[in-house]
């Protein structure tokens, strides 16, 4: 632990090394955060089963301080999007994401959550959760084995280690904006796409009309 946290830039006299460690605020802040990432209990599809297996005794996610799966987004730091994101489900996912307090992280577990997966061509499947919420780590695989998921979590820890109190967005001046929640109409409608949609839908209409003529 000493080595992990100590700041090599400030030398400590050798007789004191067993008792004193000089560290930086960033380091201790990040160390605290990355050793207690609480994920949300959030299973979508097949990948969720591997996520549960990761939490079970063989792979034991508790070794990373992450065993505290929270059922409510308000207590969670990490959303593991574990499975196929469907259009019917995506409004709820965005809402859950909005409810999570900062600092929050999103992990796309498996091919489906990253980019649509084997079911990408389907009419009810969203081709990647990153179309709606920002993703920090992608874990490929279908499904990623528990060890692959753990590797992704370690990657996330590394990412956290690289952050600094000075620049993190949640202590910045701007308040973080909530992601607009998509709406279900004749097909999925993302409010951010309103303008494009108004324009394109008109065009589609014109096209079909001209074809009909």
């Amino acid at each position: 632990m000493n080595n992990e946290l100590s700041n090599p830039d400030i030398p400590v006299p050798s007789e004191l090394q067993s008792a004193v460690t000089i560290t930086s605020l960033d380091k201790i802040y990040n160390w605290g955060r990355r050793s207690s990432i609480w994920p949300m209990v959030f299973g979508l599809a097949c990948c969720a089963i591997e996520m549960i297996c990761t939490a079970a005794s063989r792979f034991d996610i508790a070794r990373f301080g992450m065993e505290v799966f929270r059922a409510t987004p308000r207590q969670a730091d990490l959303m593991i999007v574990s499975g196929t994101v469907t259009k019917k489900m995506v409004p709820q996912i965005v809402r859950l994401f909005n409810q999570m307090p900062e600092p929050k992280y999103v992990m796309a577990m498996g091919a489906c959550a990253s980019g649509g997966g084997p079911f990408k061509e389907g009419y009810n499947v969203v081709s990647g959760i990153d179309k709606f919420v920002p993703v920090d780590v992608y874990v490929p695989g279908c499904p990623p084995t528990p060890q692959a998921l753990l590797h992704g979590l370690i990657k996330l820890q590394e990412k956290i280690d690289g952050q600094s109190l000075k620049s993190v967005r949640w202590y910045g001046q701007e308040t973080s904006e909530a992601v607009p929640v998509p709406v279900l109409g004749p097909d999925l409608f993302d409010p951010r796409q309103h303008a494009l949609l108004a324009q394109q839908a008109g065009q589609v209409q014109e096209n079909t009309e001209s074809v009909e003529k």
Partner: peptide, 13 residues
């Protein structure tokens, strides 16, 4: 090799 997690997928995947 299953250790393929990455921070970005636009190009890498």
């Amino acid at each position: 090799d299953y250790e393929l997690a990455s921070y970005d997928r636009t190009e890498a995947h």
